[in-house]
Each structure stands twice: as structure tokens, then as C-alpha cells.
């Protein structure tokens, strides 16, 4: 069985053809211009993940841009957004500081991508 994928790891966006066995297990892929495409294809066919970026309200009422410190399971995006929507960030946070330690039970932290003081 084959599956067509677009690699989303870098802006080049390679179009890949992935070979899967009868249990939809990843076997091999082609069309990727670099090795990162391979690991993307494998993860996409096993347990797809996505990076998440959003904003969190600060105590002084500004919007602090934030992101997941690493990609989280695709199915958890909306759960994560529900937590992000009610979070409140101290005005002392700097780039890279943790806003939420465990985003929607994924074990991945939500971190600031700007200094709250500079907003």
C-alpha cells in the first residue's frame, strides 16, 4: 500500500510516496530531498505530531506569543488550545520561559516566544 505525503519540515515541501505494509506500518519512502523527510514520513504514518503556536493573556492584559516547546500529537491540538485560552502569564516572563509545564497531558511545555516586558 502506498500513501502520498507532503513533507512539512521545511519550506521546500517535498512530495513523497510512502510504502506501508498491510497493517499500515511504515516501510519506506521516496521523494524526500533530505533525511528529515524520512523521519517525518515515519512519524506521520505512525503518530502524527504538529507544532502549536498561539497567544496567552498576561496579567497586565497584553497578548504574549507562545509555542509548544516541541510538536505535540495532532489529536491534542484542540485540547491544548482550551488550556491556552484560560491561561494567564506573569508579566515577568522572557523568551523560552515556561507558561504551562504540561500541555494537555502531552508532557510538552508551552513556552513564551517574546519577552512580556517588551510587549
Amino acid at each position: 500500500m502506498t500513501r502520498n505525503l507532503t513533507c512539512i519540515v521545511c519550506p521546500r515541501g517535498c512530495e513523497m510516496t510512502v510504502l506501508l505494509d498491510e497493517n499500515k506500518k511504515f516501510l519506506s519512502a521516496e521523494g524526500n530531498a533530505c533525511p528529515r523527510g524520512l523521519s517525518y514520513a515515519e512519524s506521520e504514518c505512525t503518530a502524527p505530531v504538529r507544532s502549536l503556536a498561539s497567544t496567552v493573556l498576561t496579567e497586565s492584559g497584553k497578548l504574549l506569543p507562545v509555542k509548544s516547546a516541541s510538536p505535540i500529537p495532532k489529536g491534542k491540538l484542540f485540547d491544548a488550545m482550551r488550556e491556552i485560552r484560560v491561561a494567564l502569564a506573569p508579566d515577568t516572563l522572557c523568551v523560552g520561559d515556561v507558561v504551562l509545564a504540561d500541555l494537555a497531558g502531552t508532557g510538552v511545555a508551552l513556552v513564551a516566544t517574546a519577552n512580556a516586558a517588551d510587549l
Partner: peptide, 12 residues
């Protein structure tokens, strides 16, 4: 748009 954005912003 970039192919990766069609994938992760629309198809997802």
C-alpha cells in the same frame, strides 16, 4: 502558498 502550508493549515 507553500505546499507545507496547504498541508498543515488546510488539510489538517
Amino acid at each position: 502558498g507553500l505546499a507545507r502550508n496547504i498541508e498543515q493549515c488546510l488539510n489538517d
